[in-house]
């Protein structure tokens, strides 16, 4: 099943507002240290990179390792300067990719 994610971006903001952005992704963030039921190590597989672009410009990037909890969640901030779209992209060690987008209307 594809990676399921939830994102939270305010629908609207005033120009200059600093808005909180939240993202949560369903992913085991396998450390590579955990054994399976047969005692074999499960291969490390974590979401290693997540980016957030705001109207095409990268405004946030997370490079993550096995020290990030399973089903990773992140909150960061962005200054609202114009109406447009946020695009989130991420990839895990196995090469599987995920993407989500959200629109923001900026007034003032």
């Amino acid at each position: 099943m594809s990676m399921l994610a939830r994102i939270q971006v305010p629908a609207q903001a005033r120009r200059g507002d600093i808005i909180p952005i939240r993202i949560a992704i369903q992913h085991p963030m396998e450390t590579g240290y955990r054994p399976d039921n047969f005692g074999r190590r499960i291969t490390k597989n974590v979401i290693n990179t997540l980016t957030c672009r705001y109207n095409g410009v990268e405004v946030f990037r997370a490079e993550m390792g096995s020290g990030v909890s399973a089903n990773p969640q992140l909150q960061f901030y962005v200054r609202a300067d114009s109406s447009g779209e946020f695009v989130f992209d991420w990839v895990d060690d196995s090469g599987e990719r995920g993407s989500e987008r959200a629109a923001l209307a900026v007034s003032g």
Binding site: I18, I19, T31, Y54, V57, E58, V59, F60, R61, A62, E63, M64, G65, S66, G67, V68, S69, P72, Q73, L74, Q75, F76, Y77, V78, R79
Partner: peptide
């Protein structure tokens, strides 16, 4: 983890959960 921020961020703050 390592987080890249910039003037677009508005606020230098991140929240997450770690092992």
């Amino acid at each position: 983890a390592s987080y890249r921020l910039g003037p677009h961020s508005g606020r230098a703050e991140i929240t997450t959960r770690i092992r």
